[in-house]
Simulated scan of single mutants.
Amino acid sequence: MEGSVRKKGNRWYYSFEIDRDETGKRKRIERAGGKTKKEALEALRNALNNYDNGYVEPKKILLDDYINDWLENFIKENRKITTYQRYKEIYKNSIKPYIGYTSLKDITAIKIEKLLQGEKKKGLSSSSLQGIYGVLNSLFNRAIKLKVLKDNPCKYVDRPKREKFTPNTLTIDEFKKIINTLDKSNNYNDYVMRIALQVILELGLRRGELAGLEWSNIDHNNNCINITNNLVYTNNNVVMSTPKTDESMRTLYVSNNIIQLLKKHKLLQNELKLKYGPNYIENTFNSKKYDFIFTWENGKYIHPNYYTVRFKKILKANDINKNIRFHDLRHTNATLLLEQGIDFKVIQTRLGHSDINTTLNIYSHVNLDMQKKATDKLSNLMK
């Protein structure tokens, strides 16, 4: 393929023809090349090289058009529904107001920095700013792969730093206090919450993983539970998904205590099925039936949000004045394991973290205590 350069006024321009479009006509592209013929020839060589490698400078594609296509035809098809919904909200609230109607090729690092600064002034947390940066970085990388964009402006913007997170946890005495105040005999709500809390403390599950547990997930021969489901609430709907990451699809060893607890629960659930007969609810998601471990008396699944709301009320009733979420029971599980000297790698596997640095960073406060004990032991050896 060849091109040419010519001078118009005080500037030099380059041009070349590309292959025929859908109408059968060849298209000529002409762009400003610089102030000298040499600059124009260099710009022509770069443009021809880009074209030979599949990239042609696009027409004025607005970010709004591109990102909506990206969300609907790539993210929705290839990511979890929760990721799709979260990305949509991030774009709508934090990206579109700033650069939604800017041409894709005109988005620069300085525009992204101003966007992040603007959202920071609104009071958004560092993790939220990281989420915005992550969406932008991902969509630009995809655009480059599709030859729609030549470079990713996020490369020239510092990724927002996440604030150090120290989880809130319960002590084992506080947990026992909660368990002992739940009536397991006369109140089904208390009974099922009591079992759920015991399972969470031992296994460190996310609430969606707990809500999605099925009887078929239990391997009685090996005392294991397979984590394969994630029942989540998103966009005003409860949907069945898979766990958060590939590493979250895991097999966890469970104690005999939990196995026996669940066996008794299964017997009660069978009695309730007989009691309700044809009125016992079968839970179906995406045309598939699920035999959940945790259900209400009539068989209906327990909404994931229930655990969050009920746990907050339980804390208040027990005068435990800590800012602890239901999710923090997962952190309580990990902290207790660490305090017992369990290796970080084992805890990473049990929690389903894809990166051990996530585990190390979250529980660094416990790690320091472990280091102190190790130092004390070495010091005693030297005495």
Rank of each mutant, 00 (worst) to 15 (best):
E271C: 05
S241C: 04
S255V: 07
E22P: 01
N279W: 09
K7H: 12
N73Q: 03
Y51L: 04
S364Q: 09
K313S: 09
G54Y: 10
G134P: 00
C154K: 09
N93V: 04
K322N: 06
A109I: 05
S4L: 07
L315Y: 08
K184P: 00
N256V: 05
H327N: 01
L63M: 14
L336N: 08
V366Q: 03
T358P: 05
K92I: 09
F165P: 00
T36H: 13
M1I: 09
Q130Y: 04
T83N: 13
L213P: 04
Y306Q: 06
E22M: 06
F16D: 11
Y133T: 12
N298Y: 07
L205C: 03
L41H: 02
F175L: 08
L129Y: 06
N180Y: 09
R330C: 01
K161P: 04
Q340G: 11
L274Y: 12
V148E: 15
R250T: 06
M1H: 12
M249Y: 14
Y66I: 06
N152D: 13
I324V: 15
S138P: 01
A32H: 08
G100E: 09
N53D: 13
T375C: 09
D151V: 12
V254H: 11
N257H: 12
I293M: 07
L252R: 04
R325P: 00
S94K: 11
K25S: 07
V238P: 04
P58H: 12
K322Q: 06
R310K: 14
Y307D: 00
K7G: 09
L337D: 02
K263C: 03
R310N: 02
